[in-house]
Structure formats: structure tokens, C-alpha cells
Amino acid sequence: MRVFAFLLLLIAAPALAATTPIKAGQSAPDFTRPGFDGKPVKLSAYRGKVVLLDFWASWCPPCIEEAPHLIALQKAHAGKLQIIGVSMDDSEPPARAMAKQFPFNYPLLMGDAKFGGLYGGVLGLPQIFLIGRDGKVIKMWRGEMKAGELDKAIKEAVG
């Protein structure tokens, strides 16, 4: 009976969804994906810098509202902070169209369900991971957060 239950679990396992985002203290999973500019974006290449992994989409109003601020944060902490924008749009054209609307000064790339799963599931936007110089997640935010909260966390992380 136990063997049967175990086999049943194995069969059912692929249907289970990743719904727990990577937590603080865990290593941020490495990835390499082509950026919108054609250059590869590799997370571990930024080891030594604080990284802000921003999951966004063209259909997500709060994500777009944040874009000017993220651009300003990248400028303010240049050399110490690296923002990476991961679009969770269903297809690339709307994400690329949105990318043209703002003077992004950090790499943008396409995500997908597999990429979301790598980070424990991106089940709502905006979702942001703040990653320390050691490659470990400092904090994760999903949904809207209090004004100034991200700025404060970045300031503490970059030192």
C-alpha cells in the first residue's frame, strides 16, 4: 500500500506547483538569459554587487508606475547596485514595446513560467527580490509595499 502511495505521489508530483518564493537567506538561483539588447544576462556575473531582480509585465500598472523610480535607483547607486528587469508577459512584443517607453538603464529580459518556478513561483506582480553581494536573497516583496520601504532596504544593502 505504501509503495502504491509513493508511486502515486511520484506520478502526481509534476502537477504540483512551486508556490513558495525563495526566502531570505537562500541563494538566489543563477540564470543566464538573453537581454533585450541581445547580450546575455547572467546573475552570478554580478556577484559582489547588490542585485534587485524585478519581475514586471507590460499589463501591470504598479510595475510600470515603478519604472521611473527603479531607473533613478539604478542611477543613484551605480556601481553598487544592479537592477535586472524580468518581464512576465505572455509574449515578447508588448514587453519590448513597453521597454521603449522608458529610458531603462538596466538590463531587461523575458521570463516565463519556468523562470518563475526557478524563484518559487511568481504568482502576482510586482514581485521583487533583493539579493546581497554574496548572492543570497535579503528580502522578497510581492504586491504593493509601503512607500520608501525598498529604498531603505537598498540603502542598507549597499552600505
Binding site: 504598479p62 515603478e66 525598498l150
Partner: peptide, 8 residues
């Protein structure tokens, strides 16, 4: 919005 310290 979630931000506030850097002004625009």
C-alpha cells in the same frame, strides 16, 4: 506607489 525617498 511603493516608493518615496528619491524624488521626481
Amino acid at each position: 506607489t511603493r516608493f518615496g525617498l528619491i524624488s521626481f
